[in-house]
């Protein structure tokens, strides 16, 4: 068992290396500059490829090439850089190419600031780029989890031939915690569709262009059935004290970790309250949350944005009588436990 003190960027990078990532491309942007720096050294050590790209547009298209050639690949960035990648992510989804994208979200819109935020929830969970597609989104709340999630992301990407997003934030990126490292992966799925030269086989091609009438629609239906499979199998979430609680706080990532402290305090004072935490933001745990809301009278959604996940909470709560409240901090504001505790008490 290997234990190391790492920040979120390093922990995620180590997760990728354990998962057999052979290619990293990235472009510096705060708060995740440590990511390319760390990767430049580690990839050289492992004989992988590290490229400091000229832009995030280029990074994501390099991932397209690496994935097309059949290699495990990743990039990391923060919000403005991820916006630049959206066309490329759409192409990855359309061509069914596996790749891992880490977004250490910062405050926006525009250049925003460099402090932690969750304002890219819509972008990550609704496709983000053009076309009818989805990406799996994992939302870690600690350095250990971003390590584990990054490792898992490579398996999920390969399994479904789809891009996977690890949605961290500026806090996870920069805080240090003890991380138990995953063992190095040795066996990988075969990729007979990859482009590595047509020696002994018919040529392979990768495309998202289907001009014959009806063929693109058929391709979309095929992708839809894949996403339905993901929705069935890959939902991940956690709940604390949710069974029979009349008051449920719903929060994800860093914010959920802060909210948990507030929930614990309220419980110590006798409040009948629980915390529900989606770990996959897409697929969203609608049924699991609905189950938790069975006896709920009140729901407080806490996010570091103006209210984005709350839309999914409302979908999950459509058959519930609970009243739904929101507390959020946009533009890089990070709530402290006391603040959330007060908010819990107010409602």
């Amino acid at each position: 068992m290997r234990l190391k003190i790492l920040n979120g960027c390093e922990a995620s990078a180590e997760g990728a290396i354990s998962a057999g990532c052979a290619f990293y491309a990235g472009y510096p942007i705060t708060p995740q500059n440590r990511f390319p720096e760390y990767m430049s050294e580690r990839m050289e050590h492992f004989g992988g490829v590290f490229i400091q790209a000229e832009s995030e547009t280029s990074s994501i298209n390099m991932l397209f090439g690496a994935a097309a050639a059949g290699f495990r690949c990743m990039t990391s960035s923060s919000s403005p850089g991820i916006s630049l990648m959206q066309e490329g992510i759409s192409y990855l989804a359309g061509c069914e190419l596996p790749a891992v994208i880490v977004n250490m979200v910062r405050g926006g819109p525009g250049l925003g600031d460099v402090t932690p935020s969750q304002s890219d929830y819509f972008q990550s969970t609704r496709g983000g780029g053009h076309g009818d597609y989805r990406t799996i989104v994992l939302a870690p709340w600690s350095c250990q989890e971003i390590h584990d999630h990054t490792y898992l992301a490579f398996d999920l990407a390969d399994k479904y031939r789809n891009p996977v997003i690890v949605l961290g934030d500026g806090l996870i990126a920069q805080m240090y915690e003890t991380v138990r490292l995953k063992p190095t992966k040795k066996r990988f799925p075969k990729k007979p569709w990859a482009l590595d030269g047509c020696s002994g086989r018919k040529p392979n091609s990768l495309k998202s262009l289907f001009l014959t009438p009806g063929v693109l629609e058929a391709h979309n239906w095929k992708l839809a059935s894949k996403w339905a499979r993901i929705e069935k199998r890959e939902i991940r979430c956690e709940s604390y004290y949710c069974k029979n609680s009349s008051y449920i706080v719903v929060s994800f990532g860093t914010c959920a970790r802060i909210a948990k402290e507030a929930v614990e305090r309220a419980r110590q004072e006798g409040t009948d309250i629980g915390l529900f935490r989606p770990i996959t933001l897409w697929p969203f745990p609608y049924a699991q949350l609905a189950e938790c809301l069975k006896n709920a009278k009140k729901v407080l959604v806490v996010e570091m944005n103006l209210g984005q996940m709350i839309d999914d909470v409302k979908i999950a709560a459509r058959n519930s009588n609970a009243r739904i409240f929101f507390y959020g901090r946009p533009g890089g504001g990070v709530p402290d436990p006391d603040e959330i505790y007060k908010e819990i008490k107010k409602k």
């Binding site: 280029s58 298209n61 390099m62 397209f64 090439g65 097309a68 490329g88 495309k207």
Partner: peptide, 21 residues
């Protein structure tokens, strides 16, 4: 032979990764 699509203008980025790997 093996040929892939690339987004408009991005072929050199795609080629970079393929050739490096």
């Amino acid at each position: 032979f093996d040929v892939t699509e690339a987004a408009h203008g991005r072929a050199p980025a795609v080629a970079t990764a393929i050739k490096r790997l």
